[in-house]
């Protein structure tokens, strides 16, 4: 089985600072992989390089689409990468606050639909059908994520936990093969975190996506992930199953010091 995401030798500099140093990473289909590490280890930078927000200095990113075609993602703009099947959420929530919950998800359908300006003005049958398809599939996602009651509320009026879920819903609307979650449990209380734990597992099963997540909540990471990558100072210092990583001396050193 070929990996859905294969990153080799990814490096990134900010001026003189080496934020990412020769990082390798693989994600297999339908796998949940966690990326952990102390603050400033370069986890979010890694995500930003993957999704095209930063252009990496060197290294290659290959992604296998659901069609089986492998394509190189380096240097593509973020929207092209999303179209190739990689969707993400943000560490600090970046919803569209003045749009309704449903519209937020409908935006996610943008790259899978095609109506243009003329289509919008004349509204031929095909465009109307497409609009209805967008609405229906967005509703479906929201139902699965338990946001049915708030579909017509403005996104900014949602409670924090629901906003996090909405970000995931929006990402799912792009029909990804790989979902990147940047600290999905940040700021959540233990009960919400437990719910999120179940939700992520459910998403993997229903949507058959691979999930790569950055997270600081170790309980969540250990119970959820199939494999864990550990980073420190922009380098990968360990990789393995949760049990292996927990025992790894380098990891213990990075977290607890000598």
């Amino acid at each position: 089985m070929t990996a859905i995401l294969k990153v080799t030798g990814l490096s990134m500099n900010f001026g003189g600072l080496r934020a990412l140093d020769d990082v390798d990473l693989r994600v297999e289909p339908r796998e949940i992989v966690a990326l952990i590490g102390p603050n400033g280890a370069g986890k979010t930078t890694f995500f930003n390089c993957l999704t095209g927000i930063y252009p990496p200095v060197s290294g290659t990113i290959f992604m296998r689409a659901s069609s089986g075609k492998q394509s190189r993602l380096n240097g593509l703009p973020p929207n092209k990468i999303t179209a190739k099947g990689m969707a993400r959420t943000f560490q600090n929530i970046r919803l569209f606050p003045e749009m309704t919950v449903l519209e937020n998800v409908m935006i996610g359908c943008h790259c899978r639909t095609s109506a243009g300006i003329l289509g919008a003005v004349f509204r031929p049958r095909a465009v109307r059908a497409e609009e209805q398809r967008i609405v229906d599939s967005s509703y479906k996602i929201l139902t699965r994520l338990g946001l049915t009651d708030v579909v017509n509320d403005l996104a900014r009026n949602l409670p924090y936990g629901a906003q996090r879920r909405l970000e995931i819903a929006r990402a799912l609307a792009t029909e990804p093969a790989l979902l990147l979650l940047d600290e999905p449990a940040a700021g959540m209380n233990p009960r919400e975190t437990a719910e999120l734990n179940q939700l992520i597992g459910k998403i993997r099963d229903i949507y058959e996506v691979a999930i790569l997540l950055i997270e600081h909540d170790m309980k969540l990471v250990m119970s959820l992930s199939d494999r864990i990558y550990v980073m420190e100072y922009g380098r990968r210092i360990a990789v393995g199953t949760p049990v292996e990583v927990k025992k790894n001396p380098a990891v213990i050193k990075a977290y607890l010091g000598e």
């Binding site: 973020p78 943000f90 996610g108 003005v121 990402a171």
Partner: peptide, 29 residues
Amino acid sequence: NRLQDSRIGRAWIALREDEIACQAMGIDK
């Protein structure tokens, strides 16, 4: 009126709300 509730119109509003998220959702900025 038709434009603002179309796919394009929603993309415009998304662009206004958050440019980075808008691009990350697959909209060609």
